[in-house]
């Protein structure tokens, strides 16, 4: 049983690390703000969940587990909210996604 938990934890951590890396690459390489936003926002939530889950499996019962749970909840709530607010604010600020034809008209 402990082996299974270790395996699961490692799997979660590695997957999370991969997702984070892909997100970072996207933020660096994608052509405009909204695509970068997409890369960061989408990978982030899943990656944080996976990594914190991996750490939780790693840590066993105790106060640290509870704190990790708090971090997980917090990031899961705030991350998407921040992304949403940022994208909305950018749209209102006059930034248009790539390929949007109504480039010049502001509402």
């Amino acid at each position: 049983m402990p082996e299974l938990i270790t395996l699961l934890s490692s799997l979660c951590l590695l997957l999370g690390a991969f997702l984070i890396f892909s997100g970072g690459l996207g933020v660096l390489r994608f052509p405009d703000f909204f695509t970068r936003m997409h890369a960061a926002g989408v990978t982030e939530t899943m990656a944080v969940t996976l990594i914190v889950l991996g750490l939780m499996l790693h840590s066993g019962w105790g106060l640290p587990l509870f704190k990790l749970l708090l971090i997980l909840l917090f990031v899961m709530i705030t991350g998407p909210t921040a992304s949403h607010a940022l994208a909305k604010s950018a749209l209102h600020g006059g930034l248009r996604p790539l390929g949007d034809d109504s480039n010049n008209e502001r509402h």
Binding site: V27, F33, R36, M37, A40, E44, V48, I71, L86, S89
Partner: peptide
């Protein structure tokens, strides 16, 4: 907005 996004990303990664 790119800068804000970057700072946000940096912050989340710092937490992790």
């Amino acid at each position: 907005y790119d800068r804000i996004l970057a700072v946000n990303l940096f912050g989340t990664k710092t937490v992790l």
